[in-house]
Design a protein around this nucleic acid. Structure first.
Length: 629
DNA sequence: GTAGGGTTAG
């Protein structure tokens, strides 16, 4: 235990201060001030602070100021604030610095309170103060401070103006942001980046890209914003394309670039590209195990690309694991159906005094859902409030509804939805209807759909799910009714889409796709596969199709599900015996699941499919999900 | 002596 100058201000310091090598008289305020600035560890700072007190310089303005700043830079905001409060008549420097420290810790409201305190003490803020208080501050506070900026004439200052642009653009008031941006005395790289960030944060990638393309100079930060924008808004292919452009432009990627690119790789299931980044890190002397951001991004990428082993390797080597790193690994186990491993890791995380967050609990509940661990899941859910001090959110309820519904307790799940403290959302109704389909519970499904329609809560998913249920029970008249209703309400089914990465390139397929350059060969392969399946006595399952086709046509439409096209392409374009990895946007359908099992047996290939919810590893005729998904 | 833009988990 370190003795700090705060707890033992008058007790002797146990270790001597570092040797003094300047020609300043020993322990002059100037020497101490420069020692504070150069201290490398919090321990050194404590020692110097003790020396300051011993020599009676604790009221020296410069020394005091530097101590305040240093504590803050070592993440000791509390100590920094104590010093500030002990400072008699703090001037604008003290105020600006302590406000900035709060801002950096995302404590905007206390920062704004200090700003108000400063004004009430008749200390005039300057351009530095405004930059500090506006950085990252919420829109309503920003709007209150904006007139002060104008009144004191700092709105032409580059830093202050940029901070204002940032306040508005971050909060989505892009019109105000743009107005401030367009009337700037001059644009800077930073102000442009802030504007681009505003666009990307609100999904306007087109305007963001237009500004980005028009830039005359670019640094890593603005590349990161643009690439990250694509990654976040479901355009991972564009993110990777832009990243390659960045490399061609000889701009060195930094840690943030690689984190967002890894996220894009994960979304795409682009393992080869992800591995390339991992090698890049190793070749450039970046120690992944020392960097929790990159480590976590790699865990997430490997897990989403189906390489759980690699995710575990990175996780095990990772030093200073934080809750996000744990959550990534717990989620990885859950997605791969390894529920016990997820639970074990969760418990060991709690033992290491890392407090679980709502995401950890979502991970655990999903892990239970993927293995039908009903009573464990119920236990976790009930303990959330007491043990983990977390109020269940709609997402936790969603997990529980999924867990109960999948396991066959559909009525219990419905009861939970009716009695929960939060308003049900379309996702939770969808989950419930999905369970009705799985367990062929037409009566409850119709009751739910009637409720949704009566309360104006029905959406495209509602009709699709009920339609699937009618199809599953061969009620083709019901399917037809749904189709008419969907046409009347102009709702369309989200098209199924599967992708596969071959030789560093991602190929996408939608159902019945003929657009791929190798289409002819793919369909020939598919015919061959269908022949094998027939030889193995497989009859296509015709009950999950949405369309009211005749039996033969229904079989035909199943044959060309996007997933089968991707597998067929994988079979013709990868080495015999190698693993085929598919990523798809919807859940695996029953027929594709059966077919994948058989193909894995017939071709002796491992097939890994990542669907909307989890992984399926098909090997030698069976699936890692144990047919429970 | 004080200032503006970017990061990971569901």
């Amino acid at each position: 235990m370190l003795s700090t100058p705060f707890s033992t201000a008058t007790s002797p310091c146990t270790s001597p201060p570092p040797p003094i090598t300047t020609h300043q008289p020993p322990h002059s305020p100037e020497t101490l001030a420069s020692l504070i600035t150069t201290s490398k560890t919090i321990k050194q700072l404590f020692q110097i602070h003790a020396a300051v007190i011993r020599h009676g310089f604790h009221n020296h303005p410069l020394v005091n100021f530097k101590l305040q700043r240093s504590y803050s830079s070592f993440n000791r905001l509390h100590q920094s604030l104590t010093l500030f409060n002990l400072t008699p008549n703090p001037n604008v420097f003290f105020y600006t610095s302590i406000i900035h420290s709060h801002t950096l810790h995302n404590l905007h409201l206390p920062g704004i309170k200090l700003y108000i305190q400063m004004i009430s003490q008749d200390i005039n803020p300057n351009e530095f103060t405004f930059s500090a208080v506006l950085k990252g501050c919420p829109l309503d506070s920003g709007k209150l401070i904006h007139p002060h900026v104008i009144k004191l004439g700092f709105d032409r200052n580059m830093h202050v103006r940029t901070a204002l642009v940032d306040v508005y653009s971050r909060s989505g008031d892009l019109a105000s942001a743009l107005q401030l941006f367009d009337t700037m005395p001059e644009r800077s790289l930073v102000s442009l980046t802030s504007m681009i960030t505003g666009y990307t944060k609100h999904g306007d990638l087109v305007n963001a890209r237009a500004l980005f393309d028009a830039m005359t100079e670019r640094d890593a930060v603005c590349w990161n914003v643009m690439i990250g924008g694509y990654a976040k808004y479901g355009k991972p292919t564009d993110a990777l394309t832009l990243f390659r452009k960045m490399m061609r432009a000889k701009m060195n990627p930094d840690e943030v670039t690689l984190v967002v690119v890894l996220s894009a790789c994960g979304q795409l299931g682009a393992l080869e590209s992800g591995r390339w980044i991992h090698s890049y890190l190793q070749n450039n002397g970046i120690h992944v195990h020392m960097n929790v951001h990159l480590g976590t991004a790699l865990i997430d990428m490997y897990s989403k690309c189906g390489s759980l082993k690699d995710a575990q390797l990175v996780f095990n080597k990772l030093k200073n694991k934080d809750v996000i790193a744990y959550n990534s690994m717990i989620t990885a186990y859950a997605m791969h159906g390894l529920s016990q491993e997820a639970l074990v890791l969760f418990r060991s995380m709690c033992r290491m005094h890392t407090r679980p967050t709502d995401v950890s609990l979502i991970g655990i509940l999903n892990a239970c859902a993927h293995s039908g661990l009903v009573s464990i899941g119920k236990g976790v859910f009930l303990s959330m409030k007491v043990k983990h001090k977390t109020e269940p959110t709609i997402e936790h309820y969603g997990c529980m509804v999924n867990l109960l519904g999948r396991a066959g307790y559909v009525e219990q799940a419905y009861g939970l939805v009716k009695n929960m403290k939060v308003d049900p959302d379309p996702v939770i109704w969808g989950t419930l209807l999905d369970s009705c389909t799985l367990h062929r519970n037409v009566r409850l499904a119709e009751e739910i759909v009637k409720f949704l329609v009566d309360h104006n809560l029905a959406n495209s998913g509602t009709y699709i799910l009920l339609s699937n249920l009618y199809a599953a029970t061969s009620d083709w008249a019901g399917v037809a009714r749904m189709r008419t209703m969907m046409k009347d309400h102009r709702v369309y089914k989200e098209p199924g889409c599967s992708s596969i990465e071959v030789h560093n390139k991602v190929h996408e397929f939608v159902a019945g796709d003929m657009k791929h350059p190798n289409s002819e060969k793919i369909y020939m392969m598919l015919d061959e596969v269908n022949g094998w399946l027939k030889d193995h006595g497989y009859a296509p399952q015709t009950d999950i199709v949405l369309h009211d086709f005749g039996k033969k046509e229904r079989a035909r439409s199943l044959e060309v599900h996007s997933e089968k096209l991707a597998i067929a392409f994988g079979l013709i374009s990868t080495e015999a015996g190698s693993t085929i990895k598919i990523v798809k946007n919807l859940r695996v359908c029953l027929d594709c699941h059966e077919v994948s099992k058989l193909i894995s047996k017939i071709t002796r290939r491992r097939i890994i499919v990542r669907d909307r919810n989890r992984f399926h590893l098909f090997e030698d005729g069976s699936c890692s999900c144990g047919d429970y998904w």
